[in-house]
Design a protein around this nucleic acid. Structure first.
Ligand SMILES: [Mn+2]
Ligand SMILES: [Mn+2]
Ligand SMILES: [Zn+2]
Ligand SMILES: [Zn+2]
Lengths: 143, 143
DNA sequence: AACTCACTTGCAAGTCATTTGCAACAAGAC
DNA sequence: GTCTTGTTGCAAATGACTTGCAAGTGAGTT
């Protein structure tokens, strides 16, 4: 969270400017996602959003998540063998470690790795559009 | 391809030793995968295997791919927005770049990144079981 | 070579996460 | 408040893969 974080008002205005209506359903999901400290999937976001908008449908959740993703407001992660998980894009870039025993998702960031990735791509004549790095890990048995 | 590459005979014997029968279908897929220089998906492997075993079914291809993967003979990759792709495990570890314009898959390896990943995991008390690193790239517009 | 039988296969049907067609609904510009 | 057009809920469709089952076949055994 280095750059100034957009307020909900700024985000909704940005959406409106893009011709996207800020419906109750979308506002609810925006707020749920802004408050989430984890990486929930669509059914879980649906559950959380129902508190603010009873009757919101799962398809609307899916549709809204796609919309918000294409607006760059949220990020979608497809970890191995799991359904898609989401998080607000209002954070600095980071990658993830998944504890293969517990399923816990741990965030981390490494400027050195990011730099090396860019270097490698450049050497081959490419520039990185985006990337994905996931470490599937297990607690060290410090025996 | 640093360590000595297993011959088809050695691989099939290893499978038999694991109680896995080397059927015509499985032999065909093993050979198709050994000869593939790319990262084909199941329907493509099915197509290629049909040359050796006419009538082989797509479900058998899927079942065999799962079996071979669990035997560590092949690797499964799930790139963004695509169905699973496979490659023989008879290569040294490497990661992939995907050209977002053409879909081309480019292999690369970086000891430095691999080392950094292990370091980061270790710092947090974890050891890496396996990982996934994909760079989605675009040819540099050298203008 | 014949025998045996647990492992495999082809086919049809099933899963499951996610998407989509459509008529009723509701943002938000005027 | 009215109007226009994007949105929603619901049910049905998708697409990639998985699975039940009866017939078929590796490969150890005699
Ligand atoms: Mn995260
Ligand atoms: Mn590869
Ligand atoms: Zn990163
Ligand atoms: Zn790697």
């Amino acid at each position: 969270m280095n750059e100034r974080m957009k307020s909900i008002e700024e985000m909704t205005q940005a959406l409106r400017d893009a011709g996207i209506r800020v419906t109750r359903q979308r506002a609810a999901l925006l707020s749920v996602l802004a408050e989430a400290g984890d990486h929930p999937d669509a059914p879980e976001l649906h559950r959380r959003a129902e508190a603010a908008v009873p009757g919101i449908s799962l398809s609307t959740v899916y549709r809204t998540l796609s919309t918000l993703e294409s607006q760059g407001v949220i990020q979608r992660h497809q970890f191995e063998g799991a359904s898609a998980r989401f998080e607000s894009a209002e954070t600095d870039h980071h990658d993830h470690m998944i504890d293969v025993d517990t399923g816990e998702v741990i965030e981390f960031a490494s400027d050195r790795i990011e730099r090396l990735q860019a270097e490698i791509a450049a050497e081959l004549g490419y520039e990185i559009v985006h990337h994905r790095m996931e470490l599937y890990v297990r607690k060290t048995s410090d025996s």
